[in-house]
Design a protein around this nucleic acid. Structure first.
Lengths: 201, 201, 201, 201
DNA sequence: CATGAATGAGACTTCATTCAT
DNA sequence: CATGAATGAAGTCTCATTCAT
């Protein structure tokens, strides 16, 4: 009766789930989690509303799917920073992509939406918290690792502090990209270099 | 016909508006702008739903009222930082109040809600942008002012950069207070001092 | 407890009732019986909504009061036609006043509103029917009366027919004044003379 | 998102639209445009209120649908008069059907409702005006056409006047059918013949 | 597998009416 | 006598979800 499709069971099903999530991403960005209707998602995904319920139990499941993907995107960004030679440049480029609403990167508006939603959704809050902790650990490890191993060679106690500090700054940048996408680039570059520069010194 | 009560005309009306806004604040924090219903606000304010329309044209007017108040709270916080002798301590205290959801301070969850909402609401976006710009100017002026005049005595070009940098960091802290209210206080203190300390040096 | 004011008991009360009815007339013309709110009537009458309930039991009583007045206006019009030397000219003048929404004459829009309302309000329907019958009797008597007595000197059976015929034509004119207030005046004059002329022949 | 069903796209949808319009017709006749609720229409149409919004954008669209149909009915009546051999008889028969509230003919109560509504609804007023003008043109053409071509053979200037005169009389009859459906038929017949007879002479 | 018609709950809003002041 | 704050019912409309086809 409840013919919920098992994920991974078929590539066809996966493709459908993907179509739905892509459509949902667009709709959620445009209208937010609440204001985006299942009908609008179905329209965007070019399928019937009823069909979506074969692939997702309900609207909330779609929201969770989107959140999962967004976290994955954020994870990618953070990791790219580690392996990048010029962190400041990487951050600035990412900022540009945020401002341009590049669909291939974590969407900062959705990121806010998620953060706001987590306030009233304890499981989501826990997931975000755990994600953040994980990312912070990675940042910290990277900051503390020897330079010849690709790290920043900070003293352990310093790495802890700066990981948190950097995390706050990055989240602040996300917010800024939403709120003031036309922020003066020279000033922004200076601010980023001021924050990041201290790492390389 | 237009039985809208003129604001400020009577203390009774003001008290009612205040009751409604306080109730709305609670409901918006608990459920978000969209999910909070007029009925729930009315319940919380202990009045009939219809009565609220004597004091606010519609739900959106209440939302705007709340946003205005939240911005006022944020303005207060920023200004208190200027006049405080120990900025780091002030920021940490504020962070505590954010985490405790102290009703007398800007609510960080609502702050996110507002930021997210602004994404799809151009006038709101403009208001937030203008508010941000104003606050940044104030920060910048303060950072650049002579120490004997209560400022931080930074060189002008330095003040510009640090105002933006500080603004990002503060917004990041807001986000953190929502997402991880139990963040390790020692580490947080260190991070704040690291950011602020550079100002005083 | 129910301190309903007895009509005629005081000129003060009469003046109030009049203020209310005049305001109601405006509002009903502008918005119709249903869409005109008690609040808008109170505003127009420059009194509080509550006070109106001292003079009228409820909104429906006001509607009835207005209807009564409109019928009185129509009665006046018909009687003026009798005593007029030139009926066609009188009718044309009245038509002009209808089109101009002269507040001193029966309002044709309200007349339609009343007629429509009567469809679902049997007592009102009966009142209108009885009013119509009375007016038709008067028309008929006048048409049949000797010319030296101010009548039209028609044969009795002819007077009956023409009273009804004329009544239909006049109601048609009312409708036209609402629907096409800019109707070609030369054509209208011709049509009226064609209808009325036969009476004087 | 915009799940509005395209009219004419499917017979199923057409049938539904028809069910709704028939139900609305009943409700509007019984309660008027304003007092008839969407719920009552839904009840009458034996469907949920929400479903109606798949077929009509809002209540106003239903009202417009009904008005359109009523105008179509009136157009039919006028045209039948042209082609009828005995216009007076046709008019009397139609009057009977009006009084009997025959659902297959323009409903005179709705006609009044529409006329009243047009007073405050300029687009509707324009539509009615244009409809009236069209019908008057047709009447006029018919009155002026040669008798052997099925017309009344009136002189052009006479046709103009009588078209307007006849239109007023017919509208007066509509009003009478609502207000006094039991009007003495012998008198009415005489009045109609008096009006129409002059045409054939 | 897929559709989209259908439902029903619930959202926002208006307004006639009452009543404490 | 007068006010206008307050209520509660009712109205329009939206939308997540289900289910017959």
């Amino acid at each position: 009766m409840n013919a919920q499709v098992v994920p991974g069971s078929s590539s066809r099903a996966d493709a459908q789930r993907d179509r739905i999530l892509c459509a949902a991403l667009k709709c959620f960005i445009e209208h937010g989690f609440h204001a985006a209707s299942m009908a609008s998602i179905a329209d965007t995904a070019q399928m019937s509303a009823g069909l979506m319920y074969r692939y997702f139990e309900n609207k909330n499941a779609i929201v969770l799917g989107i959140i999962e993907r967004q976290l994955e995107e954020k994870r990618t960004i953070i990791r790219q920073l580690h392996s990048s030679n010029d962190i400041a440049a990487g951050l600035l480029t990412t900022f540009e992509r945020w401002c341009a609403a590049d669909p291939g990167v974590m969407n900062p508006a959705l990121f806010l939406e998620m953060s706001a939603e987590a306030t009233r959704n304890p499981p989501l809050a826990a997931a975000l918290r755990s994600f953040d902790a994980g990312m912070r650990m990675e940042l910290q490890a990277w900051l503390g690792r020897d330079r010849e191993l690709g790290g920043m060679g900070l003293a352990p106690e310093c790495a802890v502090t700066r990981a948190l500090s950097l995390q706050c700054f990055i989240d602040g940048l996300v917010l800024r990209s939403v709120r003031d996408p036309k922020v003066d680039r020279a000033q922004l570059r200076a601010a980023v270099h001021e924050q990041i520069g201290r790492l390389t010194r």
